[in-house]
Design a protein around this nucleic acid. Structure first.
Lengths: 193, 193
DNA sequence: TGCTTGAATTTTGTTACATTATTCAAACAA
DNA sequence: TTGTTTGAATAATGTAACAAAATTCAAGCA
């Protein structure tokens, strides 16, 4: 039997640090069983964000603690509550664009698949996670782990994510693909420059 | 040296199952460092809920919009016809009491410290977690791990949780006590029995 | 009868471990 | 030379194991 000689010392080889799905160190935590599912759901979404290189901007107000909301609506364990001072009567834009501060995020759009809907690459999308994702809305969705912005169509029990650009294909949601509606796009901020 | 004879078999002794702070089994999960803080914050709140034996009722999720006719006129000559589909003068209690469905919870009040504000023990409180906890609001707060319902007072940088009943003392928030504003009470449902 | 004590048992935060995934240069083939 | 294959090196990741702390309660004591 010929011994392969591919072997030998390979200094410099090996997996790189922070090459995991979170791109950072991890830690083990003990949590109650009833929260396991929702935490894991959140981790899955979080992973997708990172994988898709999504730039997530939280509504200004919580400057330092970048709290990614952990628990989605069905869980009662609380969100961090920013019980700050009140500012009031200023900056109408926030009030105008944001209905649910706790559920609103800004996402920078990538790609041109939604040009027809006025969404250019680089635009900032105002996303409300608390809105019902009804047919016809433009949604941020996670399909099989990948983030995408499309218009949601539900018809006859079939779900389709439609691109608003002929150069892009629609995404038909088959029964074995995984769809997570992450939020509904309520506004688009496009900067001319 | 006298050997104490307290020892010996003690069948039946030992810590009881599910006597931990979650009152259920736990599991270890590996999570990214950047989420550790917010998860632990949520766990702390969750623990407080359990410790205080809070009865948490989530808004009914899909009860098909419970429309109850409003009797606006002083003359209630007959019931409005249910066939009178075309809405407008109908009130959906859910819609009326709940502004942010994702952020709204019902909590059953315990104790009489807020009698003056019309909150009786056993009442159901509608709590909106997305509202700003400004001075003067009745809030659900977690003070050093304990749930409580009080009126929030901020004055000159000092925070006080005021009971609405002379038999109860106010809670002054010192700098080393921990205050988490859990939500703002928007309505009280009192059942006459 | 009531208080003290420590054995029994569980919780809980952390470490250890085994398996999997990833990376890359040496070895090989063209 | 240039590209491809291979497996050693290294890190991620889910789970098991562990130790320390917390809790419970009956035996022993006053």
């Amino acid at each position: 039997m010929q011994k392969s000689t591919h072997g030998g010392v390979r200094s410099g080889a090996g997996r790189k640090k922070n090459s995991g799905s979170f791109k950072e160190k991890t830690k083990v935590l003990r949590v109650p069983l009833s929260l396991v599912d929702s935490i894991q759901h959140s981790l899955k979404v979080y992973r997708s964000q990172i994988r898709s290189n999504i730039e997530l901007l939280l509504p200004q107000d919580s400057p330092k603690s970048v709290d990614i909301p952990i628990f989605t609506s069905s869980v009662q364990a609380g969100f961090p509550s920013p019980a700050d001072d009140h500012l009031e009567d200023k900056l109408d834009l926030n009030k105008y664009l944001i209905q649910h501060k706790e559920a609103t995020f800004f996402v920078r759009a990538q790609g041109d698949s939604m040009l027809g809907a006025g969404i250019h690459s680089g635009d900032i999308l105002v996303v409300d996670k608390s809105l019902q994702a009804v047919s016809g809305k433009i949604v941020i969705a996670v399909v099989d782990g990948d983030f995408t912005v499309k218009r949601l169509h539900k018809y006859g029990g079939k779900i389709t994510l439609k691109a608003e650009n002929d150069a892009f294909d629609d995404i038909k949601i088959s029964s074995d693909s995984e769809l997570i509606i992450w939020g509904v796009v309520t506004s688009v901020i496009h900067r001319c420059g």
